[in-house]
Amino acid sequence: MAEVNEIVPLPHVPVGDAVEVAVDWVGDVADPVFDAFSTGVSAFIDAFVTLLLLPPPLVLVALLALLGGLIRSARFGAGSLVALVLVVSMELWVEFVETLAFIIGATLVAAVIAVPLGILAARSARASALFKPVLDLMQTMPPFVYLIPAVAFFSIGTVPGFVTTVVFALPPGVRLTELGIRQVDAEVVEAGTAFGGTPRQILRGIQLPLALPTIMAGINQVIMLALSMAVIAGLIGGGGLGSVVVRAISSLDLALGFEAGLSVVVLAIYLDRLTAALGSGTPRLRLERARSLLNRGSTSTEGGDTGSETASEEQRGSEQRNSRRPALR
């Protein structure tokens, strides 16, 4: 750098210094706000972790596997069971649960911020143009750099890692929400307007439901990014599997590092497959199928998994609901 400046006489523009001054200033001015926020976030995560650790590990493992089985498939449920039991046997369960709670919390916060921003961007070309470079910056800035101001604001611990994770994981949530809403068939939206729908009715009744698969794909990406950031957050005392990884690096403990890494992989695959199934609409079909089974009073449970069977069962279910309606009225 200095050498280049000796050849081409350019003054050093103090971009970095300016940012540092700004960050310091924000840190000074908003210190009470950050403190309150910090207390809130760590209380939330601690409570969540405590709750998840309340049942014996194997009970929670069974519950998670059951959830996977219901939402995705029986095979996925069985696979999750094996993988999660492995995590317990590697004695990384507490760290696993800490990271899980951390990811769920960060994803919730990121989604609550990202989806409304995405809706705004879909409606206003100006907002979209404004968000784009900011999102690019958030997503491509090396994640380690975020850690510096985060520590400056919140000192070390869970909270700076949490905030960093939310910032880093946010962009795909905004982008895919915008994309999903923009992709909704213009004629269907026009139909909503033509029948006199308010923008809110059109958003809730047409745009959001039709954009849901894309929005869920965005949330899925948010989770994956949050997971990668959660490990990096171990560097600043973020706790969970990240801190195990950091410990393994500093002591060059390959066995520990591999076990922690494997646990991260298990968590990643579990959350990815689960949210992917949520986005594809399978749970609703499953719910309706379950309802139709209940309606018939049948005791058979898991049927075949073919689309046509699902559709016909759903149809039969709704027919039954229809035939019952006059009686109810």
């Binding site: 068939d185 004629e187 269907v188 026009e190 139909a191 307007t193 033509a194 029948f195 006199g196 729908g197 308010t198 009744g205 047409i206 439901p209 039709l210």
Partner: peptide, 21 residues
Amino acid sequence: LRRLRQERLSMVFQHFALLPH
């Protein structure tokens, strides 16, 4: 305008524009 559309005007579209969900 919304009220007029609700009460006086309806529309049928070329590609049906039904709600798939």
